[in-house]
Structure formats: C-alpha cells, structure tokens
Simulated assay, not measured.
Amino acid sequence: MKLLVFDFDGTLVDSLHNITRAMRAAFAATGLPYPGDDATRRQIGLSLREAVAGLAPEGVSDALIDAATEAYKETAFAIRNSPDFHEPLFPGARQMLDALHGRDDVFLSIATGKARRGLEPLLERLDIGHLFAVTQTADDAPSKPHPGMLLNAMERLGMEAANTILIGDTVHDMRMAKNAAVTPIGVAWGHHEPDHLLAEGARDVAGDFNHLHDMIESFFQRGRRP
C-alpha cells in the first residue's frame, strides 16, 4: 500500500481569492496595516494564527493577533455562506482523485492548515470527502512545517514514510515532508514558485494534474520514491 497526502488550498482547491479577501477584512477590523496579497500568499499553508502573526507588524500583542485571527474566521464563515461563494477544484483534480481512489493499493489523505470546521463543509460541497481515508487539520497537530499531520496520518493508516508522498504547493508543505522523512512533490499552479519548492526539497514539480498523475503512477510502478 501507498499513502498520498494532499495539501488542500492551492493544491486541490482554488481558494486564493477568498483567503486574501478574508485576510484583508481581518486586518481592517483590527486596525492592523495589511501588508498585501503577495505577503498573504507566502503565508498560505501555515495554520491560521501562525499566518496572521507572520503578516502582523513586529511587536504586535498576542491579544491583537488573536483578535485578527477571530476576525478572519468570522469573515471566512460569512464568505463560505454567501450566495456568490466560489471555491472550485482545480481543473483535472477530480478526475485524478477518482482514478486514484479506484485503486486497491493506495490511501488518500489531506493535510491542511485549515481548521476542521473550515475543511469539512468544503469537502461536502465538492463531494470529495469520501475519497479520503484520513484528513488532518490545524486542530489535529501543530502548524506546518511540523510533521505532526503527516505522522498522524501514517500512524492511523499503518503506513511508513518510505511509502508516503506529500503533494503540496508551498514551501511549508515541502518542509513538513522533509521533517517527516516522506517524499515531497510540488505543484506549479499553487501559491509558491516552483523554484522555491525545489529549493526546499521537492523531488519534482508537476505542471498540471496529468503530469502529477504520471509521477504518481511512476511511484507505484517502481515501488519506491519517484
């Protein structure tokens, strides 16, 4: 058996527009200067409080960071429940997930900086929750790049690092994979540049889901890391 662990935002789901919208609102609500959408993009992948702290000016109090974190949650909840909410899977993601789920030699999992209350409604809305044997969120382990989410998933499914791949779009994903001693694969359509993913240890970077599927098939065929 093999274990494929996917990041969520920027890897499977196109969510940047909603993340930056919520972060702008959170900083405005607490009177903090917003450093810009590019700065937010660099923080995506971390758990929410860590991302907010990374964007806030140096020396800001914990209380204000907590307030901005709560403001983000409130805004994200409102966005998710608005009539114009749109957060689709990237083209090709569903087809690849369905094909992999149909195999009898693989487990699929998610490791995301989202809280569970943010992830589960989206899995239901996208009708993909049943494809994943295990989901790991910010509620289950420390923020990436800590390896806890990967270690938890491997333990739950009885898998070893040598038979596990982490697929993600940020340097935080690549660092988490290295910290758990699993193979990291990057994707080029997400939030961080391919060169940065390679510099952080990505074995390779997929240009689209067909390329990613081919890389995974190679992993299966060789019975070892791609």
Rank of each mutant, 00 (worst) to 15 (best):
M1V: 12
F6L: 03
F6G: 02
F8I: 02
D9W: 01
G10Q: 02
T11Q: 08
L12R: 07
L12P: 06
V13K: 10
L16D: 05
A22T: 00
F27H: 01
F27C: 05
A29Q: 04
T30W: 04
G31E: 04
G31L: 10
Y34I: 05
Y34P: 03
P35C: 11
G36A: 12
D37F: 13
D37N: 14
D38M: 12
T40C: 06
R42K: 10
I44S: 01
L46I: 00
S47I: 00
L48G: 07
L48S: 04
L48Q: 01
E50C: 03
A51Y: 01
A53G: 10
L55K: 11
A56C: 08
E58G: 12
I65K: 07
I65L: 11
T69D: 02
T69C: 08
E70S: 09
K73V: 04
E74R: 15
E74K: 08
A78R: 15
A78Q: 15
I79N: 13
R80Y: 12
N81S: 12
S82E: 13
S82T: 09
P83Y: 15
D84M: 12
F85L: 06
H86L: 11
P88L: 09
L89G: 02
G92S: 01
G92N: 01
A93E: 01
D98P: 00
D98F: 00
A99I: 00
H101Q: 08
G102D: 03
F107V: 01
I110K: 10
I110N: 11
A111L: 15
K114L: 05
A115W: 08
A115E: 10
G118W: 07
L119E: 05
P121G: 09
R125M: 12
L126Y: 15
L126H: 14
I128A: 14
V134E: 02
Q136Y: 00
A138T: 05
A138I: 06
A138W: 04
D139L: 03
G148K: 03
M149I: 09
M149S: 02
L150A: 02
L150P: 09
A153F: 02
N163F: 05
N163Q: 11
N163W: 13
L166I: 15
L166P: 13
I167C: 09
G168I: 11
D169V: 05
T170N: 12
T170C: 14
T170V: 14
H172T: 14
D173F: 02
M174V: 10
M176N: 06
A177N: 09
A181G: 00
T183W: 01
T183R: 00
I185C: 02
W189M: 03
G190W: 04
H191K: 06
H192V: 14
E193I: 13
E193C: 11
P194T: 07
P194R: 07
L197E: 14
A199G: 11
E200Y: 13
G201E: 02
R203C: 01
R203F: 02
A206C: 09
A206V: 08
G207V: 07
D208N: 08
F209A: 03
F209C: 06
N210A: 13
L212E: 09
H213L: 06
M215Q: 11
S218T: 10
F220L: 03
R225H: 07
